[in-house]
């Protein structure tokens, strides 16, 4: 049991568990985001956001979430460095083996996604959390007007492009990450693996589409 952090398989296990956790979180997050465009009333979204930042259970969940993300990133880094060290001299002719395309670029798509995340934190999350956004008072409760914040942001074309691009790369990351996590957990089987592979593609497409549709609608409408 103590070997779990030391051994490569242990690290990968934790990484894949964290990955699957993040995968579920992405769906939840997407659901809340979509409130902005589904409901005309911006307060629906603002209330949901308010709930997310004030509920105690959510706060605990948030800590786990950050932990998971950190774990995913740190173990990925360690494993990746080991992987680089495992082949000190590279091949002259690149690898033409017939493998899943996106699996070769996990670290690259990860870096892009992480960069986006950092910006997202600095730009939005901290504001939402620590209140630099404008406030709206409804029924005596002060809500951050995050909905308007989003509306403003997504009227800027460069921001929209950056946002969508980041999600496309995240999608690439997920296509392989989704199914790889199951294999690392030991779940690989003639019957179910093809199903998981299809699910991975559906899930990745849904995530990319779900997040990207928001800026598109806001920008063009």
């Amino acid at each position: 049991m103590s070997g779990i952090i030391i051994s490569s398989l242990g690290k990968k296990l934790l990484m894949s568990l964290a990955g699957i956790f993040l995968i579920t979180f992405l769906l939840l997050h997407m659901g809340i985001n979509l409130l902005v465009i589904i409901f005309e009333d911006p307060m629906v979204y603002n209330k949901a956001a308010h709930f997310m930042s004030s509920n105690i259970l959510i706060k605990i969940f948030e800590i786990i979430l950050f932990g998971g993300l950190l774990l995913h990133v740190i173990f990925a880094l360690i494993l990746q460095i080991q992987n680089w060290l495992a082949r000190p001299k590279r091949y002259n002719k690149a690898n033409y083996s017939n493998t899943s395309f996106f699996s070769k670029f996990m670290i690259h798509t990860a870096v892009i996604t992480l960069t986006f995340l950092v910006i997202h934190f600095l730009d939005f999350y901290i504001k939402a959390k620590f209140g630099h956004a404008a406030e709206i008072i409804v029924d005596g409760v002060a809500y951050h007007d995050l909905a308007s914040e989003i509306m403003d942001k997504f009227k800027m074309l460069p921001f929209v492009i950056f946002y969508i691009a980041a999600f496309i790369f995240l999608g690439f990351h997920l296509i392989h990450g989704f199914q790889s996590a199951f294999k690392t957990l030991g779940l690989d089987n003639k019957k179910y693996t093809p199903v998981i592979q299809v699910l991975a593609i559906i899930y990745s497409t849904v995530v990319v589409a779900g997040y990207s549709i928001i800026p598109l609608i806001i920008y063009f409408l």
Partner: peptide, 23 residues
Amino acid sequence: GNCTNTGACEAECPKGIKLTNIA
């Protein structure tokens, strides 16, 4: 190095050993 389930090993194995063995 560490496995990232890319499947290159399976594709190149001369004896067709399956990735399911890794799982």
